[in-house]
Design a protein around this nucleic acid. Structure first.
Lengths: 232, 232
DNA sequence: AGGTTAGTGACACCGAGTGCCACCGGCAAG
DNA sequence: CTTGCCGGTGGCACTCGGTGTCACTAACCT
């Protein structure tokens, strides 16, 4: 918890450091920028953000697999054990509160106008959820480059996307009166997510286009049954 | 290699078993059904098949996460280390020679008639690759139930599907003259795979339909831009 | 017979994750 | 002020997936 984490042992089995109480005694008098009091309110949110930031920076610099949870914990000034109290897996540190995004997507879909074509509603919801401010774009790029580029994160993403698909499939089911497990709701959910993911990839690789434009382009193709393909 | 694997140590750090030479000496004279000679030709293929079978049976019975690689090795009559000489990861034991399927898909796409619409070629290739004999269907069901149901395998599948997507995207790129990295080839690849995966899920859940029928149904919807959705 | 080679098992090691316990700080009740 | 509770934490031991290394064996090739 000492803001300057230098001097902490951090690793397990390293046995070259002092017990953590010692580190506290060292760091304590040196740093006074955190008043020690009022640590309770949302110190957890702070710590979580610090871990996430440290992890993201390390992943971007060295690659996901090359970073150990020990290093992340060290960089964030906490112990390895505490890292896993904030994030269930190493991969989860890359996905900030993703469940919030899913909830937001759900709310947007539920509030969609009934006159609007279903795919248009889904596209609009995807665009809205991914409407980041210019200042946040660099972090988004970094995050998505990791998620789409690192095989381990690519694999992990499947689990996260399952939630998205469920929400979208339920929306389609509501609109068509079918069961969420039927072919059409599932298919619309998975293929619209495929469209979104592809748009992200193109947006990342290109660098000149807008994410919203790429999303619209992908969804237009999907909704029209890939008209440019009919030349065959 | 003793056909009856009872008496093997199997686990690591268990230290209650004899050295492996001892086990060989015990198992040797007892079992003569394997002529010891002609073990070289494709004993590897045999061993690989035995491991795969043991793993699949254990996964289906206890769940993927509840099975350790030690157990698989024991059941297959080999050591843990040898398991990882045949399969890079525990998850890979579920996917039989999947690269063969990808190669076959690639060949089918390359041989597709140019007059045929692109999506029809892709659908036909998917159907062809997944045209199992009636006798193999139970194993296919078991495999796919694991891959689509177990989160860990679901995640791992992403890596495998990346190869499929690459092959399909390259085909689309050849047909349209675009780059394989452009939006349309990527999008067609990912969304057609989404269609295939969804068809598999529905086929698995339903039990009365044909996989080929479900695949055609999904691709028809995709190619037509989800016509039943236009009621909005 | 001697050397080569492929397949194997034992072993040690790493890193992700988990359960458990001890500690320490804040806080309420006495 | 002391006592006891409680949330967050660090340390530790353990499991399990995965890897590098080494020694051994059996088939093979001269």
């Amino acid at each position: 918890m000492t803001p300057s984490a230098t001097g902490k042992t951090g690793g397990r089995m390293r046995s070259d450091g002092w017990p953590s109480a010692r580190a506290h005694r060292i760091g304590g008098p040196v740093s006074q920028d955190v008043p020690v009091t009022e640590l309770l309110p949302d110190a957890r949110a702070d710590t979580r953000a610090r871990i996430e930031q440290a992890a993201l920076e390390l992943f971007a610099r060295k690659g996901f697999e090359q970073v150990t949870t020990d290093e992340i914990a060290d960089a964030a000034g906490i112990s390895r054990r505490t890292f896993f109290r904030y994030f269930a897996t190493k991969a989860d540190a890359v996905w900030g509160d993703f469940s919030l995004h899913v909830e937001r997507l759900d709310r947007l879909l539920s509030a969609a106008r009934a006159e609007q074509p279903v795919l248009a509603s889904i596209c609009a919801a995807y665009v809205e959820v991914n409407d980041y401010s210019a200042g946040d774009l660099p972090m988004l790029r970094q995050r998505m480059a990791l998620i789409l580029g690192e095989p381990a994160l690519q694999a992990h993403s499947q689990v996260r996307y399952a939630d998205v698909d469920r929400v979208v499939a339920e929306h389609v089911a509501r609109r068509t009166g079918e069961s969420p497990g039927a072919l059409l709701p599932r298919l619309v959910a998975t293929s619209s997510r495929a469209a979104a993911t592809t748009a992200f990839e193109v947006w990342l690789a290109d660098g000149t286009t807008t994410l919203a434009d790429d999303l619209h382009a992908a969804f237009d193709q999907l909704a029209a049954g890939f008209p440019t393909l009919r030349s065959g």
